[in-house]
């Protein structure tokens, strides 16, 4: 863990400096966490809600943070869990029966006013959305964020070997989808 991470943790654990440290933490991680969440829930407004929920959870549970994991992986873990909780509760609330998560997320992608990718980017996103949930998260973390497997292992509580296999399968499936639509 780098020094700034340690300073943040020290600041967060102290009641007098907690608020200041928390503001620094938000400034430092808001963008990275936003993009991680956005790629899971797809829609901007949903991503905004989930990001706020994530930081509120961090604020409430900062005392429970054990320094066995790094602050960065702890934050990603909370953000991932909040995103999945959001998707599942939305699926339950939806009046239209959804066959799977990808259908609901595909609707989010189609209706997203803040998607500015070209046709090939849209096809890539469609291919990613067709992946099973865990493979999709692994693929996004590796492909877009270039997260180390060791860190990902802490975020997703999965072995490095299983994550590598998961990424491999995801890439293969995306490749097949891209070829099939050519």
């Amino acid at each position: 863990m780098d020094n700034s991470g340690l300073d943040l943790i020290t600041g967060l654990k102290n009641e007098k400096t907690r608020e200041l440290a928390f503001n620094s933490l938000v400034k430092k991680y808001q963008e990275r966490l936003y993009w991680h969440i956005r790629k899971i829930v797809m829609d901007h407004d949903d991503a905004d809600d989930v990001l706020q929920n994530t930081f509120i959870k961090v604020w409430r549970s900062v005392d429970k943070f054990r320094e066995e994991s790094s602050l960065y992986t702890w934050l990603y873990r909370i953000a991932t869990n909040e995103s999945l909780t959001f998707i599942n509760s939305n699926k339950r609330r939806s009046l239209v029966p959804m066959n799977d998560t990808s259908e609901f997320l595909m609707n989010n992608l189609i209706s997203d006013a803040h998607f500015e990718g070209d046709e090939i980017q849209k096809r890539l996103q469609e291919a990613i959305l067709r992946l099973p949930e865990k493979q999709r998260i692994v693929f996004n973390l590796k492909y877009y964020e270039e997260m180390k497997y060791e860190d990902m292992s802490q975020v997703l509580d999965t072995s490095v070997g299983a994550l590598k296999a998961s990424f491999h399968h995801a890439a293969k499936k995306i490749e097949e989808y891209l070829k099939s639509r050519d």
């Binding site: 936003y34 993009w35 956005r38 790629k39 901007h44 997203d112 803040h114 998607f115 500015e116 990718g117 070209d118 090939i120 980017q121 849209k122 890539l124 996103q125 492909y143 877009y144 891209l178």
Partner: peptide
Amino acid sequence: IKKENPFRV
């Protein structure tokens, strides 16, 4: 495919 973020805020 060029690795870029197609989403905006």
